[in-house]
Computed example of a mutant assay.
Amino acid sequence: MTAPRTFRIAAVPGDGIGPEVVAAGRRVLDALAAETGAFALEWTEFPWGCDHYARTGRMMDADGVRALRGFDAVYFGAVGRPDVPDHISLWGLRLAICQGLDQWANIRPVRFPPGVTGPLRRDDTAELDWVVVRENSEGEYAGLGGRNLAARGPGSEVAVQTSLFTEAGCERIIRFAFELARTRSRPKVTCVTKSNAQQYGMVLWDEVFARVAAQYPDVESDSGLVDAMAARFVLNPEELSVVVASNLHADILSDLGSALTGSLGLAASANLDPERRAPSMFEPVHGSAPDIAGRGTANPLGAIGSAALMLDHLGLAKEAARLDGAVAAATGAGVLPADLGGTATTEEVTAAVIDRL
Rank of each mutant, 00 (worst) to 15 (best):
A214N: 03
H249P: 00
V244M: 09
A214C: 00
R232Y: 03
D227A: 12
H249D: 14
G224P: 00
L240I: 08
E220T: 10
A245R: 04
E220I: 00
D255Q: 12
Y216H: 12
D218Q: 11
D222P: 02
G257L: 12
Q215G: 12
E220H: 02
L235G: 01
I252W: 00
F209C: 04
D255E: 15
V243T: 13
E207T: 14
L256M: 14
F233C: 14
V234L: 15
L253C: 13
V226L: 10
V219F: 07
G257T: 12
L256C: 07
G257M: 12
V226I: 15
L240C: 13
F209D: 03
Q215N: 08
A228E: 04
A228I: 04
D255V: 13
S246K: 00
L235V: 14
A228R: 07
L253T: 12
Q215A: 15
A230H: 02
V242I: 15
A214M: 04
S246Q: 12
S221F: 14
D251F: 11
F233P: 01
V226S: 05
V208K: 01
P217A: 01
P217C: 01
F233N: 07
V234A: 13
F233D: 09
S223G: 05
V219N: 03
D222I: 08
V208D: 05
S246M: 06
F233K: 06
Y216N: 03
S246N: 13
V242M: 06
Q215R: 14
V244C: 10
A231E: 02
S254H: 10
A245W: 06
E239G: 06
L225F: 06
L256S: 07
V242T: 08
Q215K: 04
D218N: 06
A214V: 04
G257V: 14
S221Q: 09
V243E: 10
R211D: 13
E238C: 00
N236A: 15
G224W: 08
V212A: 09
M229P: 01
A228F: 14
A228P: 00
L240T: 07
L248H: 07
P237A: 10
N247I: 09
F233S: 12
E238F: 01
D255H: 11
P217T: 07
L225H: 11
S246F: 02
D251M: 13
F233T: 11
E207D: 14
Q215I: 04
D227K: 05
L225A: 08
A214H: 06
A228K: 00
E220M: 05
E207P: 00
A231L: 14
R211Y: 06
D255W: 13
S221M: 13
V244G: 09
R232G: 04
V208S: 05
A213I: 08
V234P: 01
V244T: 13
L253S: 11
P217N: 03
